[in-house]
Amino acid sequence: MKLAWLRSVETAHQDCVWACTWVPPTDTSPKTLLLTGSLDETVKLWDPQELSLVRTNTGHCLGVVSVAAHPSGKIAASASMDSFVRVFDVESNVTIATLEAPPSEVWHMQFDPRGTTLAVAGGSSASVKLWDTAEWKQIGTLSIPRPEGSKASDKGNNKKFVLSVAWSPNGRQLACGSMDGSISVFDVQRAKFLHHLEGHTMPVRSLAYSPVDPRVLVSGSDDERIHMYDAEGKTLFSSMSGHSSWVLSVDVSPDGAAIASGSSDRTVKLWDPKMRAAVQTMTNHTDQVWGVKFEAAGSGARGSLLASVSDDKSISLYNYS
């Protein structure tokens, strides 16, 4: 289990790079592409082979905070701080839809594994908005229930501000992370809140399910910890410390054996959950690492790629094996 640095693009964007995701290959474009979003209000598409720029999308105001790719690889979405979600055709950059659910802010987004629904973390609405990907209509809202006895006006409620969202690999469950450190798990089909996962005490900025075990949910938080939960059994497998600042992004490797994390401490770490410790630390970034993402499995025996993006305006690629 190790990471090998492959290449970086130093000034990939004009400003901080805040989001990245992999766009799966399609019939017409056999290559997996990397999609990144930045404070410079652009979304860029990269060919991982040489990390060469494929296209620059404009149209967002205020920084781009999240990007998501449809499992088909044909469409993708980008969200910015002005709370618009732009859905576009990857190949042609034609805008398919502009989503807005006022007054909710937009933070992380993710398409469900089958590609029928886009889940959007809805900030202060304390909910996750679900959008139908065929009609591009909002089809549901998964709201975090208020703690019993609290009033609507209770100021404590804005701590349930939803930042992050993740689908389980089978598409049945959805988890979202909040400012107060709690993680809420929903049954999507029944649109029902299941339970909270506790343990973090500061904002949970990133969530990722293990692609091989739909029970295992990994979370990263400002409290510098990475937690590994049994999302169904409501138990905490392990709490891993090692980053010296906020954990901004986590992802689970395609084989489910490793966790990658990006942190404000400018590092990317690779974790072995069995050892409950980091096994490798990459220090090539010079500022906060806002996104780490493994390329989905299927690229053969050479292992898979990991991308990281940072406030230092750069993008880096690593080989995970």
């Binding site: 909270h196 996962l197 343990g199 049994d230 409501k234 138990t235 905490l236 497998f237 392990s238």
Partner: peptide
């Protein structure tokens, strides 16, 4: 390695 109920984690 014993998992812990998440409600106790705090």
């Amino acid at each position: 390695n014993q998992p812990m109920d998440s409600s106790l984690a705090a």
